[in-house]
Design a protein around this nucleic acid. Sequence first.
DNA 1: TCTCCTCTGTAGCGATTGCTACATAGCGCG
DNA 2: CGCGCTATGTAGCAATCGCTACAGAGGAGA
Lengths: 181, 181
Amino acid sequence: MVTRETRRAAAIERMADHVLAHGLAGASLRPLAAAAGTSDRMLLYYFADKEELLAATLGAVASRLTAMLDAALPAGARLPYGALLAAVWTAVGSPALRPYMRLWLELAAAAASGLQPHRGVAAAIMDGFVDWAGSHLDDPDPAAVAGLLATLEGCLFLDAVGRRDLADAAAARGDVSAAAR
Amino acid sequence: MVTRETRRAAAIERMADHVLAHGLAGASLRPLAAAAGTSDRMLLYYFADKEELLAATLGAVASRLTAMLDAALPAGARLPYGALLAAVWTAVGSPALRPYMRLWLELAAAAASGLQPHRGVAAAIMDGFVDWAGSHLDDPDPAAVAGLLATLEGCLFLDAVGRRDLADAAAARGDVSAAAR
DNA sequence: TCTCCTCTGTAGCGATTGCTACATAGCGCG
DNA sequence: CGCGCTATGTAGCAATCGCTACAGAGGAGA
């Protein structure tokens, strides 16, 4: 069936829009179906259950995000630690990516509670980030990758609790400590 | 009424136990009431609504957390950046504090969505952390405080998505960069 | 034409949500 | 004693949750 897969794929994209706009908390079947232009009945026809549906939707969100990251910093470009941190934070802290970051935080919180599919999806996304960081640092030392990601996710966290000022300061400080090394 | 305030306070402590064990997601009135040894009816007699109840419960959790932090690193002790980062991460990453960190992450995610009382409670807790960090760094430069907190929350985040290895590496790296400065 | 088989709408289930109306039990105070 | 206030149980409300049973519609193949 061509139409079936087509419609399923279209539903995934529209549901990705919806979770980006309303978060995981508002991701129940009926609102998702309304956003996708179908019924909850049909969603459970396309997907075995909500878990499979969520995994597909979050996967779509993740590939959008990596596409945006690649657009902001093309593959092949390698930067020193401080510069990369600053560049990624300006990209990631921008309003365009804010819905993604809100969702990413929500996903991490769910993953910490061990729920599926959140745990698996979050682990996969994080693996992607690790690869991404490794391929954009001029010196992809594992400890540097870890430091970069920790600072970055920490900035995200600080921003989430309303301390954007601290996040900006921490991202800027990356330059300082790297320059001093 | 002595008994009323007493029972209300006892309920708060038991509910704090419950949210630590089961997270915010499981924090609905009936389970909370069961944990507190009362009925949902009585919880809404003690508290105006769920929002007030949650604020009180999360406040209790927060004061327990600051007490544990003070126990781990007494007030007055001041350390250089890298040493403080390592000390706090070993405390905060320990199994004893894991429920607190899981809850803190969940709270941050809810705060990012702008919900009350989560937003206000999270902001208050974060202010406490900022003060705490400032009073335990030997050189309480605002940028250093920001960097410390970002790295710390980032380690928390990495641990949440199953990359404890990266969190440990990032925390250890704090020493390196500080030593090189 | 008849018969399957795929697709989809309707309706509903039992559980859970925050919250409330009502009744009552028991105690203090006049 | 009797009145009233505080405390608490019972029962239920409307909404939402994920999910499912059933029925029909419509096209494909015999």
